[in-house]
Write a protein that binds this DNA or RNA. Structure first.
Lengths: 222, 222
DNA sequence: AAATATTTTTAAGTAAACCTAAAAAAACTA
DNA sequence: TAGTTTTTTTAGGTTTACTTAAAAATATTT
C-alpha cells in the first residue's frame, strides 16, 4: 500500500510528535531521518497529497488519523519483531533494532496478530518500550528516571531512554538489564554519580549521571 | 548491499536456469517477473555491470559465481521463512509465499543461521522443496511424478511441481499433503485419471491427470 | 533465399526518493 | 526596526526501476 520510505517518515513524525509539543518541523525530521531538509519537504508534500499528514509550509507537519494508524501499526510490528528476535532467536537487545526496522515493513493482513499470539501477547519490548495493541492503544510505563531516586530507595529498571547500541552494550557490561533492582546508596555530589547496590547480585556499582538519566525505573518496596 | 529488485531478478534467473538447459532468455525472464522485455534488458545491463551475471545481447544471461551465491542464499532464506510461518505461526502452505517473498530480503549477517537453528535445521520447506545449506548445496528429493506410478504401487507425496495457491488449496480439499501415502488402484484409460487408495485414512479418491502430473512421490513398500 | 514473424534492444519518458545550490521566509538581535 | 542569521523551500539534477513505441536483430516459413 505505502512505500517503506513513506512508512519510515510516518514513524518518525509520530516519534517526534509524542516527544514534544507543537508541530513537527522539517529540520527535526531531517535530523531524525538522517537526510536533508529538501528531501523532507519533498516527502511531506507527498504524504500530504495522500492525506497521511497535514503539512503547512514554514510551519510544520502533523499526522492525520490514517497516518497515525499506520505509524502506530509500524511501531507495533517493530516491537513485536524485537521480542521475537530476542526471545526466540536469542539476539541481544543491542542487536535487534536494524532487523526490526526491516521486518516491520513486511505486509500481510494476519502476520502481526499471528506473531503476537506466538509470542504470548507481550505488552513491552526488550527495551521496556510499550507495544501498542491492535486498536492503537499504548500500555503505560513508569517514566521516572533513576537519577530522580532518593537515597535509600529501591527501584527496578523498566526501560531505557537511550536506545543506542553503545549505551545498551555499556549496560550489558555493567550487568544491568530490564528487571534489575537497584538501591541508591549514595549520590556523589562531585559529579552526580550514583553509588548503587544490587541486592540480587550482592554487589555495588558506580553509575554516571548520564547513565542514571537514561534509565527508567519503578520504585519497589523492600 | 543489493536492491530487492536486483535480488528478485537473480532468483528468477536461478529458477529458470535450474529448470532448462542453455541460457536464460529475456522473454522467459519477463514472463517469470511479470514485467516487460525492455525492463529485463535494463536490469540485465545493471546486473552485468555489477558482475552478478554474464549477459550477451540477443543471446541470454547466466549467473556469475557471486550471482549464484546470492540467489541461492535468497532461496535458502525464503524457504526457511516458509517453514517458520507454517510450523511456528500456523499458516497453511498456500498462504506463505508472499510473506516469504518479503522476508527473504531482510539483511543481517546472523539472522538466517539463527532462524535455521530455531527451526531445527530443516532441509525441506512446507512444499517439499529442498532448502540449500549455508554452503549452497541442495539436498536431493525424488523427482518421480505420481502420474508415472504403476498399478498396485504405493508411494508417499514428497513435493509439488505446481506452487499455485489454487493447486495447493485443491490438495487441501482432497486431504492430500506432504507425507500422504497413496496406492494406485487403477489408471482410468478414458482421461488418464488415477483411482487411488489412501491406506492411513481408509478412503479412495479419483485424481485428475493434471493433479497426478503435479505431485512428486517416493515409492514406499507395503 | 527472400519475405514474414518473433524476439530483443534502443529511445524516450515517468515517478519515487534522494542530492546540492540558490532563493525565500521566518526568527533572532543589536 | 533594520540587519543578520537560521530555517525552509524551490530549482535543477541524479539513480533506480519501471513504462510504451520504434528500430534492429534473429528466427521461421514458404
Amino acid at each position: 500500500m505505502y512505500t517503506s520510505s513513506e512508512e519510515n517518515y510516518l514513524k518518525a513524525i509520530l516519534k517526534l510528535a509524542r516527544k514534544e509539543e507543537g508541530p513537527v518541523t522539517t529540520g527535526a525530521l531531517a535530523a531524525e531521518m538522517n537526510t536533508t531538509a529538501p528531501s523532507v519537504t519533498d516527502m511531506l508534500r507527498r504524504l500530504s497529497e495522500k492525506n497521511l499528514a497535514t503539512y503547512e509550509k514554514y510551519y510544520g507537519v502533523a499526522l492525520t488519523e490514517e497516518g497515525l494508524r499506520i505509524a502506530t501499526t509500524l511501531v507495533r510490528r517493530h516491537r513485536l519483531w524485537e521480542v521475537f528476535l530476542t526471545q526466540k532467536l536469542g539476539f541481544q537487545w543491542d542487536e535487534v533494532h536494524d532487523m526490526a526496522e526491516q521486518l516491520e515493513h513486511v505486509q500481510h493482513p494476519e502476520l502481526t496478530e499471528r506473531l503476537n499470539a506466538f509470542l504470548g501477547y507481550p505488552t513491552f519490548d526488550p527495551h521496556g518500550d510499550p507495544i501498542p495493541n491492535a486498536q492503537g492503544e499504548w500500555p503505560s510505563r513508569p517514566h521516572q528516571l533513576l537519577s530522580s531516586l532518593a537515597t535509600g530507595q529501591i527501584a527496578a529498571v523498566v526501560g531505557v531512554d537511550d536506545h543506542s547500541a553503545a549505551f545498551l552494550q555499556h549496560l550489558n557490561r555493567l550487568g544491568i538489564g530490564l528487571g534489575t533492582r537497584l538501591e541508591l546508596v549514595e549520590r556523589v555530589e562531585f559529579d552526580l554519580s550514583l553509588y548503587v547496590h544490587l541486592p540480587e547480585q550482592n554487589r555495588n556499582l558506580m553509575l554516571s549521571d548520564k547513565v542514571a538519566r537514561s534509565l527508567f525505573v519503578e520504585i519497589s518496596n523492600a
